[in-house]
Lab assay of single mutants.
Amino acid sequence: MSGNGNAAATAEENSPKMRVIRVGTRKSQLARIQTDSVVATLKASYPGLQFEIIAMSTTGDKILDTALSKIGEKSLFTKELEHALEKNEVDLVVHSLKDLPTVLPPGFTIGAICKRENPHDAVVFHPKFVGKTLETLPEKSVVGTSSLRRAAQLQRKFPHLEFRSIRGNLNTRLRKLDEQQEFSAIILATAGLQRMGWHNRVGQILHPEECMYAVGQGALGVEVRAKDQDILDLVGVLHDPETLLRCIAERAFLRHLEGGCSVPVAVHTAMKDGQLYLTGGVWSLDGSDSIQETMQATIHVPAQHEDGPEDDPQLVGITARNIPRGPQLAAQNLGISLANLLLSKGAKNILDVARQLNDAH
């Protein structure tokens, strides 16, 4: 009898209710805020589980004197976190989706994509230029951005401005803007500013005609071990179906173009009346040469937790077992079709030249 009692006690200790789920994140304040929001949602869904947040620095956090596009290494903000995932030191990792490459290392998958916040870019102005827009900034004003995508589009749109690289986390960039006289304004992701509670610093939100956004911008991705079915089931509740389908289309477009950090590629997606609209573009580094096109596809946005595919093969690095396969494939095909259209119009040449120029500098 006593033996059975011990077995029952052991089973209770090993039951999922007692389990601590370890969540990996970057150390920056924004990353911690984003991770806290994901953990809060998981806690609400699984009140019996405990969650421990483990923060670590990544290569991208450490190399702050070089433009991201020049470092010449993929997975700048993800490699150390993936290493911890691989060694079973954490069970899942919360990322900004735009930091996750469209091809993940073997053994990993994006197990959830959370509801997207505003994906557009924002302009934050130096205190002396508050009330201005990019259009009304004085001639030769210097605007800071760490992104080739932003610089290429904005140089084309605002030729009277000069664009220079600015690195560091959000706090560091804002301090550089406010305390030094080098920059009249800087460009940042609206979602990051909003998550930090800095709505009052948003001086201008850039519309798609001015600057399309990065693939996955404004959404959070939760990376897990691809074979860890328990954790895949656990994080599945975080999937937002519309965000998922938009981001599958965007990531398929980028992957098929073979774009990345070192080339200016941008997108804009919208879901309306059962249609998914995808606009994508590529630019030369100075913005003088560009190709942009829009395509659409009829896609039914499923309700969360309709029964999805059981075999769960990944699409552009994403596993969404609780979302039907048909809409996911339709979104992926839309991204591939748009990429093929741009490639047929000469996108590869623009991107190759951009890559060579970026590598040469």
Rank of each mutant, 00 (worst) to 15 (best):
R22Q: 10
V23K: 00
V23G: 02
K27V: 14
L30V: 08
T35A: 11
V38C: 09
V38P: 00
A40Y: 14
A40N: 07
L42C: 08
P47I: 04
P47N: 13
P47D: 09
E52G: 11
T59L: 06
G60Q: 08
L64C: 13
L64S: 06
T66H: 08
T66V: 14
L68W: 07
I71W: 07
G72L: 08
E73N: 06
E73H: 15
S75L: 11
L76T: 10
F77E: 01
T78Q: 09
K79Q: 11
E80Y: 03
E82Q: 06
A84K: 09
E86L: 11
E86T: 10
N88C: 13
E89V: 11
V90G: 04
V94N: 03
V94P: 06
H95N: 13
L97D: 01
L97P: 01
D99R: 02
D99Y: 02
G107T: 01
F108Y: 13
F108N: 09
G111F: 03
G111L: 01
C114E: 02
E117F: 12
A122Y: 03
V123P: 05
H126R: 08
T133L: 09
L137A: 06
L137M: 11
K140M: 10
V143M: 09
G144D: 04
R150I: 02
L154P: 01
Q155W: 11
F158D: 09
L161D: 00
F163V: 13
R167W: 07
G168E: 02
G168Y: 02
N169G: 08
N171K: 13
N171Y: 13
T172V: 06
T172L: 11
R173P: 01
E179R: 09
Q180P: 10
Q181S: 10
I187W: 03
A189F: 02
T190P: 04
L193V: 07
Q194G: 05
R195Y: 10
W198G: 08
H199L: 09
G203H: 00
Q204K: 08
H207W: 14
P208G: 13
M212W: 02
A219T: 06
R225Y: 08
A226M: 15
V237R: 10
V237M: 08
H239E: 05
D240R: 01
D240Q: 14
P241R: 03
T243H: 11
T243M: 00
E250S: 02
A252E: 08
A252N: 02
A252F: 01
F253L: 09
F253Q: 00
F253P: 04
R255N: 04
H256C: 12
G259T: 13
H268T: 00
T269A: 09
M271L: 13
M271I: 15
K272T: 12
D273I: 07
L276T: 01
Y277D: 11
T279V: 07
G280F: 02
D286P: 08
G287A: 05
S288R: 03
Q292T: 10
Q292M: 13
E293Y: 07
H300L: 12
P302S: 06
H305C: 14
H305S: 06
H305P: 03
G308A: 12
D311Q: 11
D311A: 14
P313H: 06
Q314A: 04
V316L: 13
A320V: 10
R325E: 11
G326L: 03
G326R: 11
L329T: 14
A331L: 02
I336S: 15
L343Y: 01
K345C: 05
A347S: 09
N349S: 07
L351E: 14
D352W: 09
R355W: 15
